[in-house]
Amino acid sequence: MFEIIEKKILKPSVTLIKIKAPFIVKHAKPGQFVILRVEEEGERIPMTITEANHDDETITIIFQVVGATTTKLNQLEVGDSLHDFVGPLGKATHIEGLKKVAVVGGGVGCAIAYPVAKALYDQKTIVHSIIGFRSTDLIFLEDEFKACSDKTIVMTDDGSNGNKGFVTDALKKLLESGETYDEVIAIGPLPMMKFVSLTTKPYGIKTIVSMNPVMIDGTGMCGGCRITVGGQMKFACVDGPEFDGHLVDFDEAIRRNSMYKDFEIKQYEHACNLLKEQDDAK
């Protein structure tokens, strides 16, 4: 069993948990992910690793409550255990030799972008972080990003932090002002990564995106996570999860992620109803 030894509610729908996982910590690197099951008969869901701590042998993940499984995951408290926890999966982020990088995070994707920014900063890469949220009350990890970035720009869709716009607006401004980067690393919702890639393309700056498609095993067995990259079929779980954003067919990936939308909505409503019943019973 995989015990939760720390839990922090970062935002009303964003939670951090630290899980005891001595085996997984051993080889875990930034950019890799784990697959977990909350309970028997639960689905297997992939989660990118936020931190692998070798001292206390824990894996930290930050997740947004978006569906039935993440709702159930959010119900677990310190001392509870995950039913299954396996990893590290996928390839690690390539950061060696990069001199100057813009790290772009969107929403809960910032939880994954942060360890990448930190790893870059630790190897003395110049890091410009651009992170975006829907509004001020959803901002998280701002201080952490600031601590490992030479420049940090925080955007909000609604402008509630005084900096209205998307991450792409900020990135565009930087590029137009003459900033250049060895690489732009973008992690967030698919449309965000798509538009970051479109923004950097005219400048010819290599852009890495982190894909998070539907998957079951995470070892290349099911092929459910297949995406098209440069006209070729790739499995995100073993060939990725990071790919060249200029080559990814985002529209197809967005469409494939909607495969089980109806089922997911039903499951989510069911999970919410169960929770409500539990609360009512109290």
Binding site: I216, G224, R256
Partner: peptide, 18 residues
């Protein structure tokens, strides 16, 4: 890549294992 195309592995894993 269309929605509704499965590998037999994925289809059977969803049914048998999951």
């Amino acid at each position: 890549m269309l929605n509704g195309v499965y590998s037999a592995n994925e289809f059977l894993t969803r049914v048998n294992l999951m």
